[in-house]
Write a protein that binds this DNA or RNA. Structure first.
Lengths: 220, 220
DNA sequence: ACGGGCCTCCCCCGCACGGGGGAAGGGACC
DNA sequence: GGTCCCTTCCCCCGTGCGGGGGAGGCCCGT
């Protein structure tokens, strides 16, 4: 069964673009569109999409409020992918704190957009998608990692992966982790890769940051 | 002028070993020895060593209490290098929290010992010396990073280095940091290396861990 | 009995990382 | 004027890391 997506954006152009990109995939189906946040809830109830691709800045009801409303009022709410034009957007962090599952820049390449939708649909999170990493790099500083807790909660690490992440967060190398767990380094690499993928982290450093930001490991 | 060292250990054999290793260096001078913590304070007042190499487990007054006493009562106290037999030693962490500047395993290679003394004397800290990393790897878990705050406080990062560390702790790569600071990647590598050296970290991940553990960056 | 998730290990590969040097300019302090 | 530190950039070099695949054994649920 395909992944069903609801597009929510005030600009028709953007909706059309997203639709074109996503419908090109055999396993993704755009089931509906909305031009503002207020129209989202009834549409979700009616269409029950797997994923809502939601703009943050919209008239009437913005993406943040719409996200909150969705999670508050709808049973088994869809997964929410925040789509942002780019820039500084503190709104993005607000939205993630409100319960969104990931974020994506509109200027991302089609393959990235598709990938993001699939990942979100699979129940994983996008904390550091390539595009947003850039945003963080460019406009960082502003306490950007509100996303982390939500991301970590939703990351669904296996026991082994969690164990590996804890050891990463203690500064151990792959070889050291392997020795500790009495397995091969290749095995550790597998787990590390899985952790990075699930957290949307690019490297172990970002994974450790996510671990701290989310409270998965605590200082002191 | 040479680095002056006071050895404090209840085992004569260990003192002799340390003396042999350290005296082999032209720039290091062992100016005295003590067999227990109680003898340390008067000796420090008298000899005013740059560094005190202190065992943790000792009769009468252990290394932790001796460290506290030194820092509390002596003006311009020496730098304190905690020397531990090995193992689990929670005492080590206590000692570091009490104000010690680094720790070292007795089974470390001579070159490591010498290096540790020089580093400590220079006002830097040893948060993750190779030997202790191993300890942490082997016996970890037990909330090992009490050292971090003290280490960070004493690390004396330059402004630029601190800036680089903050960016590292946001998950940025060297190239991204370079772009952010509008300098070359080689420059960033220099700063990163300096940060790693000053924190006693092996790689950027450990540096970021130290940053979190010390409160240099805060989650949330 | 079959599928699915998890853990384990394997291959190849490119690159960023970090260690080892060094060197130049500028500002501060003596 | 000289010295020290900070900042900037350069070289070479090894390797740990992470991406891309795949594959077999195990247990569990149905």
């Amino acid at each position: 069964m395909p992944v069903t997506v609801l597009l929510v954006d005030d600009e028709p152009l953007v909706r059309a673009g997203l639709r074109a990109v996503l419908e090109a995939q055999p396993d993704i189906e755009v089931v509906g569109e909305a031009a503002d946040g207020a129209a989202v809830i009834p549409l979700v109830r009616q269409l029950r999409p797997d994923v809502v691709a939601m703009d943050v800045r919209m008239p009437l009801l913005d993406g943040i409020e719409a996200t909150r409303a969705l999670l508050r009022t709808v049973e088994e709410p869809p997964r929410i992918l925040v789509v942002t034009t780019f820039e500084n957007d503190e709104y993005v962090y607000e939205a993630l704190r409100a319960g969104a599952d990931g974020f994506l820049l509109k200027r991302a390449r089609p393959a990235e957009i598709v990938h993001a939708v699939r990942l979100i649909a699979e129940g994983e999170s996008l904390l550091f998608p390539a595009s947003v990493r850039q945003l963080a790099a460019e406009y960082g500083e502003s306490g950007g990692n509100r996303a982390a807790r939500a991301a970590m909660d939703r990351a669904r690490l296996t026991e082994r992966e969690a164990e590996v992440l804890r050891l990463m967060a203690r500064g151990l190398s792959n070889a050291e982790i392997a020795a500790r767990l009495v397995v091969g380094t290749e095995t550790v690499k597998s787990h590390v890769s899985a952790v990075l993928a699930k957290l949307g982290a690019r490297d172990r450093t970002q994974a450790v940051i996510a671990a701290y930001e989310s409270g998965f490991v605590a200082p002191g």
